[in-house]
Simulated assay, not measured.
Amino acid sequence: MMHAVIFLPWPDRRLSPNARGHWSSLARAKRAAKEAAFYLTKQAGVEKIQAESLTVRYSFFPPSRRAYDLDNLVASMKAAADGIALAIGVDDSKWNIAIDPRGPVEKNGMVKVQLEWEA
């Protein structure tokens, strides 16, 4: 079993399915999240993955003690998932998503993304 770990910034609140912002603001947030995920994946040393499927495990480290809705957090990660998929060459339709328990409060928040696949 092969694995890799990527640390991403906390998702922009405009990416939440409950956000009701202007479409252009949402488009900018999506583009920024996708680009950040792509470059942070490359920076973590993750190359193209030759796998039919992989498990992607999210661990959320919130920026505050506020209660965050877990399904909205996962949905907020869609643009970042597209950036990771582009970097590793495995379409996100072939991913199995898993969610670890939430981590402790982290200044500015972060998301730990673990990739696991068969070599």
Rank of each mutant, 00 (worst) to 15 (best):
E47K: 14
L54K: 06
S76L: 06
I99E: 10
R102E: 14
M1E: 11
L70C: 06
A119K: 14
K48D: 12
R102N: 11
L40Q: 14
L26V: 09
G89Y: 04
V113M: 09
Y68Q: 08
K30S: 05
T55L: 09
M2W: 04
V5R: 12
Q114L: 13
A29L: 04
K34V: 01
K48S: 13
R13E: 13
K42W: 05
R28N: 05
L73H: 07
I99N: 03
N72H: 14
A33E: 09
A36Y: 00
G103S: 08
D92Y: 10
V90L: 10
A98R: 12
Q114F: 00
V90I: 15
K78V: 09
R65K: 14
Q43L: 10
G83E: 00
S53C: 04
A81D: 12
Q50Y: 10
R14T: 02
R66L: 13
R13G: 05
L86R: 09
R28A: 10
K78D: 15
D12M: 02
V56L: 15
S53W: 02
V90R: 04
V5P: 03
I99C: 10
P62L: 06
W23G: 03
V105N: 03
R20H: 08
A27H: 08
H22I: 04
R28F: 04
D92A: 03
M77F: 03
A4I: 01
P63H: 07
V46H: 10
W10K: 10
V111I: 10
W95Y: 15
P17W: 01
A19M: 05
D100Y: 07
S16G: 05
D12R: 03
L15T: 02
D92H: 08
H22C: 00
A4S: 13
P63I: 06
L70K: 06
A87S: 11
A19D: 11
M1N: 07
D69G: 03
A81Y: 00
L26E: 05
R20G: 02
A75I: 01
I97F: 15
R28M: 09
Q50W: 05
G45H: 06
S16D: 11
P11G: 13
E116T: 11
I49Y: 09
A85K: 00
K107F: 06
